[in-house]
């Protein structure tokens, strides 16, 4: 195992975060805080509670998931896309590092950033909304699993994308709408049929539901199903990354 190689990639990516602190950390924290102010404090105070939880507190897992998904994807996709774009990828490809080590470095750093950001958002939310977490360890597990899985997904997008537009395409056109429609701001039990059933085809529902269970002890779908879907998505991403390196898809001609 080339530990120095993994560390080099990880440190390089983390250094980018500290170098672009405003963009990497401050901006997502600010935009999520605005959601808490508008939906949690301003509008939320006029809405009734859901399953005994205030609306402001109810949306925390969903908003956390929204930030986690978008930041994991964006960090990991940019991390691998930029070396491709600038040509510096030659160095990684010619180094004695295995595909697993490359992924560990890039995805590890992206997931670390996302989890740090998630924890920062949780701390910031406490300023605006009163909440407590029923299962803190499960919360951490869901944060970690989601961060790693979607960083892997971002890594795949970064490899696939051939320009900056493609890089933004899936996060903006697919992931964000799925998150908004996946129960971030409401319980899916509030939806009429057939929307309630159709929503179950949205994979983000299981992520938000699992995290909401970890927070408050209740969820839209069964916990085992949430964990199963997250694990399934993780395995699918791992299999895709493995195929990419085997075939050299868009990285090695």
């Amino acid at each position: 195992m080339n530990w120095h190689g993994i560390t080099a990639i990880y440190r390089f990516e983390m250094a980018r975060t500290w170098r672009t602190l405003m963009q990497s950390i401050a901006s997502p924290v600010l935009s999520t805080s605005l959601y808490f102010i508008v939906f949690g404090t301003a509008i939320g105070s006029r809405m009734g509670s859901i399953d005994g939880i205030s609306y402001g507190a109810f949306i925390i897992p969903g908003l956390l998931m929204l930030s986690l998904l978008s930041e994991s994807i964006s960090n990991a996709s940019f991390g691998i896309f930029f070396p491709k774009f600038s040509g510096t990828i030659y160095e990684v490809l010619s180094a004695p590092v295995s595909p697993f080590e490359i992924v560990a470095g890039y995805v590890g750093a992206a997931a670390t950033k996302s989890v740090l950001l998630g924890l920062l958002i949780l701390a910031t939310a406490r300023i605006f909304v009163d909440y407590s977490i029923v299962h803190p360890l499960w919360t951490l597990l869901f944060l970690l699993l989601t961060a790693v899985t979607f960083s892997l997904f971002g890594f795949i997008i970064g490899i696939w994308a051939e320009d900056f537009q493609q890089l933004q395409l899936i996060p903006l056109m697919v992931v964000t709408p799925l998150t908004f429609l996946g129960g971030a701001f409401y319980s899916i039990s509030m939806l009429p049929e057939p929307w309630q059933t159709l929503t179950l085809f949205n994979p983000v529902v299981y992520l938000i539901s699992g995290l909401r269970w970890a927070f408050y002890g209740f969820a839209d779908v069964n916990l085992a199903l949430s964990l199963g879907m997250t694990a399934f998505f993780l395995i699918a991403c791992l299999a895709t990354v493995s195929w990419i390196f085997k075939r050299g898809y868009r990285i090695r001609s």
């Binding site: 080339n2 120095h4 080099a8 440190r11 390089f12 170098r19 510096t88 030659y90 160095e91 590092v97």
Partner: peptide, 25 residues
């Protein structure tokens, strides 16, 4: 390589140290 492919925003020291680590040293 032929092309001047460098990490524009990195310092000289950081990029050279990165290369050494990448190659397992």
């Amino acid at each position: 390589p032929q092309e001047l492919a460098t990490d524009s925003f990195e310092s000289v020291w950081a990029t050279v140290a990165f290369s050494r680590g990448l190659f397992g040293k």
